[in-house]
Protein backbone atom coordinates (compact mmCIF):
# COMPACT_ATOMS: atom_id res chain seq x y z
CA UNK A 1 0.00 0.00 0.00
CA UNK A 2 2.99 2.27 -0.35
CA UNK A 3 2.05 4.04 -3.57
CA UNK A 4 -1.09 5.37 -5.24
CA UNK A 5 -1.18 2.66 -7.88
CA UNK A 6 -0.84 -0.17 -5.39
CA UNK A 7 -3.58 1.29 -3.20
CA UNK A 8 -5.91 1.67 -6.17
CA UNK A 9 -5.27 -1.93 -7.17
CA UNK A 10 -5.89 -3.15 -3.62
CA UNK A 11 -9.15 -1.26 -3.23
CA UNK A 12 -10.42 -2.43 -6.60
CA UNK A 13 -9.40 -6.00 -5.88
CA UNK A 14 -11.26 -6.09 -2.61
CA UNK A 15 -14.24 -4.38 -4.27
CA UNK A 16 -14.60 -7.24 -6.76
CA UNK A 17 -14.52 -9.75 -3.89
CA UNK A 18 -17.14 -7.84 -1.92
CA UNK A 19 -19.35 -7.44 -5.02
CA UNK A 20 -19.17 -11.17 -5.68
CA UNK A 21 -20.05 -12.00 -2.06
CA UNK A 22 -23.00 -9.58 -2.02
CA UNK A 23 -24.23 -11.00 -5.33
CA UNK A 24 -24.02 -14.52 -3.91
CA UNK A 25 -25.97 -13.44 -0.83
CA UNK A 26 -28.65 -11.85 -3.02
CA UNK A 27 -28.90 -14.95 -5.19
CA UNK A 28 -29.28 -17.18 -2.11
CA UNK A 29 -31.73 -14.82 -0.37
CA UNK A 30 -34.30 -15.75 -3.01
CA UNK A 31 -34.52 -19.24 -1.50
CA UNK A 32 -36.10 -17.98 1.71
CA UNK A 33 -38.64 -15.83 -0.11
CA UNK A 34 -41.85 -17.88 -0.05
CA UNK A 35 -43.62 -18.67 -3.31
CA UNK A 36 -47.14 -20.00 -3.68
CA UNK A 37 -48.20 -19.57 -7.29
CA UNK A 38 -51.59 -20.69 -8.49
CA UNK A 39 -53.18 -20.72 -11.91
CA UNK A 40 -56.08 -22.13 -13.81
CA UNK A 41 -56.16 -22.68 -17.57
CA UNK A 42 -59.34 -23.53 -19.42
CA UNK A 43 -59.71 -24.38 -23.07
CA UNK A 44 -62.14 -21.97 -24.69
CA UNK A 45 -62.13 -23.04 -28.32
CA UNK A 46 -59.94 -25.10 -30.60
CA UNK A 47 -59.96 -25.22 -34.40
CA UNK A 48 -57.76 -26.98 -36.90
CA UNK A 49 -57.37 -25.44 -40.36
CA UNK A 50 -55.25 -26.27 -43.38
CA UNK A 51 -52.80 -23.66 -44.50
CA UNK A 52 -49.37 -22.94 -45.90
CA UNK A 53 -46.33 -22.26 -43.74
CA UNK A 54 -45.53 -19.32 -46.02
CA UNK A 55 -46.98 -17.78 -49.16
CA UNK A 56 -44.92 -19.62 -51.77
CA UNK A 57 -45.09 -23.00 -50.08
CA UNK A 58 -46.51 -25.91 -52.08
CA UNK A 59 -47.07 -27.95 -48.96
CA UNK A 60 -50.22 -27.69 -46.90
CA UNK A 61 -50.12 -28.25 -43.21
CA UNK A 62 -52.69 -28.38 -40.49
CA UNK A 63 -52.64 -25.61 -37.94
CA UNK A 64 -54.31 -25.66 -34.56
CA UNK A 65 -55.72 -22.48 -33.16
CA UNK A 66 -56.39 -22.64 -29.45
CA UNK A 67 -58.27 -20.01 -27.48
CA UNK A 68 -58.02 -20.19 -23.73
CA UNK A 69 -58.89 -18.59 -20.39
CA UNK A 70 -56.10 -17.96 -17.94
CA UNK A 71 -56.39 -16.83 -14.33
CA UNK A 72 -53.05 -16.80 -12.60
CA UNK A 73 -51.65 -15.33 -9.43
CA UNK A 74 -47.89 -15.41 -9.79
CA UNK A 75 -47.24 -12.33 -7.67
CA UNK A 76 -45.22 -14.36 -5.16
CA UNK A 77 -42.65 -15.02 -7.91
CA UNK A 78 -41.75 -11.34 -7.79
CA UNK A 79 -39.28 -10.76 -4.97
CA UNK A 80 -36.59 -8.12 -4.69
CA UNK A 81 -34.28 -10.04 -7.01
CA UNK A 82 -36.78 -10.71 -9.80
CA UNK A 83 -36.18 -8.82 -13.01
CA UNK A 84 -38.87 -10.41 -15.12
CA UNK A 85 -40.85 -13.59 -15.54
CA UNK A 86 -41.20 -15.23 -18.92
CA UNK A 87 -44.60 -16.86 -18.89
CA UNK A 88 -45.76 -19.31 -21.52
CA UNK A 89 -48.51 -21.78 -22.26
CA UNK A 90 -47.70 -25.01 -24.00
CA UNK A 91 -49.94 -27.52 -25.71
CA UNK A 92 -48.67 -31.03 -25.05
CA UNK A 93 -49.84 -34.07 -26.99
CA UNK A 94 -48.48 -37.58 -27.45
CA UNK A 95 -46.46 -38.40 -30.53
CA UNK A 96 -47.70 -40.80 -33.20
CA UNK A 97 -45.19 -43.40 -32.11
CA UNK A 98 -45.34 -44.49 -28.51
CA UNK A 99 -41.55 -44.69 -28.32
CA UNK A 100 -41.14 -40.96 -29.00
CA UNK A 101 -41.57 -38.31 -26.32
CA UNK A 102 -44.69 -36.16 -26.47
CA UNK A 103 -44.68 -32.95 -28.52
CA UNK A 104 -44.78 -29.71 -26.61
CA UNK A 105 -45.52 -26.45 -28.43
CA UNK A 106 -45.84 -22.92 -27.11
CA UNK A 107 -49.09 -21.24 -28.09
CA UNK A 108 -48.80 -18.03 -26.09
CA UNK A 109 -46.14 -16.24 -24.09
CA UNK A 110 -45.56 -12.98 -22.27
CA UNK A 111 -42.72 -11.15 -20.54
CA UNK A 112 -43.98 -9.95 -17.17
CA UNK A 113 -41.70 -7.20 -15.85
CA UNK A 114 -41.18 -6.59 -12.16
CA UNK A 115 -41.63 -3.12 -10.75
CA UNK A 116 -37.84 -2.68 -10.65
CA UNK A 117 -37.33 -3.43 -14.35
CA UNK A 118 -36.89 -0.45 -16.65
CA UNK A 119 -39.45 -0.04 -19.41
CA UNK A 120 -39.05 -2.16 -22.50
CA UNK A 121 -41.27 -2.39 -25.55
CA UNK A 122 -41.44 -6.19 -25.33
CA UNK A 123 -42.97 -6.14 -21.87
CA UNK A 124 -46.46 -7.58 -21.65
CA UNK A 125 -49.25 -5.07 -21.21
CA UNK A 126 -52.21 -6.71 -19.63
CA UNK A 127 -55.48 -5.86 -21.41
CA UNK A 128 -58.03 -3.96 -19.36
CA UNK A 129 -60.90 -6.06 -18.05
CA UNK A 130 -64.00 -5.75 -20.21
CA UNK A 131 -66.24 -4.29 -17.54
CA UNK A 132 -63.74 -1.75 -16.24
CA UNK A 133 -64.90 1.83 -16.44
CA UNK A 134 -61.47 3.39 -16.84
CA UNK A 135 -60.73 2.12 -20.32
CA UNK A 136 -57.84 4.08 -21.69
CA UNK A 137 -55.83 2.83 -24.62
CA UNK A 138 -52.91 5.08 -23.80
CA UNK A 139 -52.01 3.60 -20.44
CA UNK A 140 -49.05 1.26 -20.49
CA UNK A 141 -49.67 0.04 -16.97
CA UNK A 142 -51.20 -3.28 -16.16
CA UNK A 143 -54.59 -3.02 -14.42
CA UNK A 144 -53.40 -5.73 -12.02
CA UNK A 145 -50.33 -5.97 -9.78
CA UNK A 146 -47.26 -7.68 -11.26
CA UNK A 147 -47.85 -11.39 -11.76
CA UNK A 148 -51.64 -11.32 -11.71
CA UNK A 149 -53.25 -12.36 -14.97
CA UNK A 150 -56.91 -12.62 -15.88
CA UNK A 151 -57.40 -13.41 -19.54
CA UNK A 152 -60.70 -14.45 -21.00
CA UNK A 153 -61.09 -16.01 -24.45
CA UNK A 154 -57.47 -15.08 -25.22
CA UNK A 155 -56.29 -15.63 -28.77
CA UNK A 156 -53.07 -17.61 -29.12
CA UNK A 157 -49.95 -15.77 -30.17
CA UNK A 158 -48.75 -18.68 -32.27
CA UNK A 159 -50.76 -21.16 -34.31
CA UNK A 160 -49.13 -24.51 -34.03
CA UNK A 161 -48.47 -27.37 -36.39
CA UNK A 162 -46.88 -30.78 -36.07
CA UNK A 163 -43.72 -32.30 -37.52
CA UNK A 164 -45.93 -34.60 -39.61
CA UNK A 165 -48.12 -31.72 -40.76
CA UNK A 166 -51.17 -33.54 -39.38
CA UNK A 167 -52.92 -32.35 -36.27
CA UNK A 168 -56.60 -33.19 -36.63
CA UNK A 169 -58.10 -35.87 -34.39
CA UNK A 170 -54.99 -36.02 -32.21
CA UNK A 171 -56.06 -36.91 -28.68
CA UNK A 172 -54.92 -36.28 -25.12
CA UNK A 173 -53.91 -32.66 -25.65
CA UNK A 174 -53.35 -30.65 -22.51
CA UNK A 175 -52.53 -26.98 -21.99
CA UNK A 176 -49.85 -26.32 -19.40
CA UNK A 177 -48.54 -23.15 -17.86
CA UNK A 178 -44.81 -22.68 -17.70
CA UNK A 179 -42.51 -19.91 -16.60
CA UNK A 180 -38.91 -18.87 -16.28
CA UNK A 181 -38.05 -16.48 -13.48
CA UNK A 182 -35.18 -14.24 -14.54
CA UNK A 183 -33.47 -12.62 -11.55
CA UNK A 184 -31.17 -9.60 -11.41
CA UNK A 185 -28.41 -11.85 -10.07
CA UNK A 186 -28.46 -15.58 -9.60
CA UNK A 187 -29.86 -18.64 -11.26
CA UNK A 188 -32.81 -18.87 -13.63
CA UNK A 189 -35.61 -20.96 -12.19
CA UNK A 190 -38.33 -22.75 -14.11
CA UNK A 191 -41.76 -23.87 -13.04
CA UNK A 192 -41.85 -26.30 -10.12
CA UNK A 193 -44.75 -28.64 -9.50
CA UNK A 194 -43.37 -29.99 -6.21
CA UNK A 195 -42.84 -28.08 -3.00
CA UNK A 196 -39.16 -27.19 -2.54
CA UNK A 197 -38.39 -25.56 0.80
CA UNK A 198 -40.22 -22.23 1.00
CA UNK A 199 -41.35 -22.59 -2.61
CA UNK A 200 -44.72 -24.20 -3.02
CA UNK A 201 -45.38 -26.02 -6.26
CA UNK A 202 -47.79 -24.52 -8.78
CA UNK A 203 -51.42 -25.17 -7.93
CA UNK A 204 -53.46 -25.89 -11.04
CA UNK A 205 -51.80 -24.71 -14.21
CA UNK A 206 -53.05 -27.57 -16.38
CA UNK A 207 -56.17 -27.67 -18.48
CA UNK A 208 -58.49 -30.61 -18.94
CA UNK A 209 -57.56 -33.07 -21.67
CA UNK A 210 -59.05 -32.32 -25.07
CA UNK A 211 -58.85 -33.49 -28.69
CA UNK A 212 -57.92 -31.55 -31.81
CA UNK A 213 -61.08 -31.52 -33.96
CA UNK A 214 -61.43 -32.22 -37.69
CA UNK A 215 -60.19 -29.50 -40.01
CA UNK A 216 -62.44 -26.62 -40.88
CA UNK A 217 -62.68 -24.88 -44.21
CA UNK A 218 -59.50 -23.05 -44.99
CA UNK A 219 -61.13 -19.63 -45.35
CA UNK A 220 -61.81 -19.50 -41.63
CA UNK A 221 -60.08 -16.53 -40.07
CA UNK A 222 -57.50 -17.87 -37.68
CA UNK A 223 -57.70 -14.80 -35.54
CA UNK A 224 -54.22 -15.08 -34.19
CA UNK A 225 -53.28 -12.11 -32.06
CA UNK A 226 -52.27 -9.30 -34.39
CA UNK A 227 -50.75 -5.86 -34.13
CA UNK A 228 -48.19 -5.03 -31.51
CA UNK A 229 -48.87 -8.24 -29.66
CA UNK A 230 -48.57 -10.47 -32.73
CA UNK A 231 -45.45 -8.75 -34.00
CA UNK A 232 -43.47 -9.06 -30.82
CA UNK A 233 -40.12 -10.71 -31.17
CA UNK A 234 -40.00 -10.19 -34.91
CA UNK A 235 -37.60 -7.73 -36.49
CA UNK A 236 -39.26 -4.46 -37.42
Amino acid sequence: MHSTLVRAQNVFGLFTTVAFCVATAIALSVLISPQEPSASIKLRNVQVVRGRPHYYSQKKEEYAHIKFDLDADLSSLFNWNTKQVFLYITATYPSLKASEPPSQVIIWDAILPSSSAPWHENHYIHPNPKNSKTRSKTTSLSPYPAGEIHLSNQRPKYQITDMSGKLQNRTDVVLELGWNVQPWVGALTWINWQDVGAWKGLKGGKSDIFTFPETKRKDVDLGTAKGGEGNRGKPA
Partner: peptide, 14 residues
Protein backbone atom coordinates in the same frame (compact mmCIF):
# COMPACT_ATOMS: atom_id res chain seq x y z
CA UNK B 1 -21.24 -4.61 1.26
CA UNK B 2 -22.98 -5.66 4.46
CA UNK B 3 -25.03 -2.46 4.78
CA UNK B 4 -25.95 -2.58 1.08
CA UNK B 5 -27.30 -6.11 1.38
CA UNK B 6 -29.20 -5.50 4.63
CA UNK B 7 -30.81 -2.26 3.46
CA UNK B 8 -31.75 -3.75 0.10
CA UNK B 9 -33.13 -6.94 1.61
CA UNK B 10 -35.33 -5.27 4.18
CA UNK B 11 -36.66 -2.62 1.82
CA UNK B 12 -36.92 -5.24 -0.96
CA UNK B 13 -35.24 -2.85 -3.36
CA UNK B 14 -32.20 -4.13 -5.23
Amino acid sequence: GIIAFIVGFFTQDI
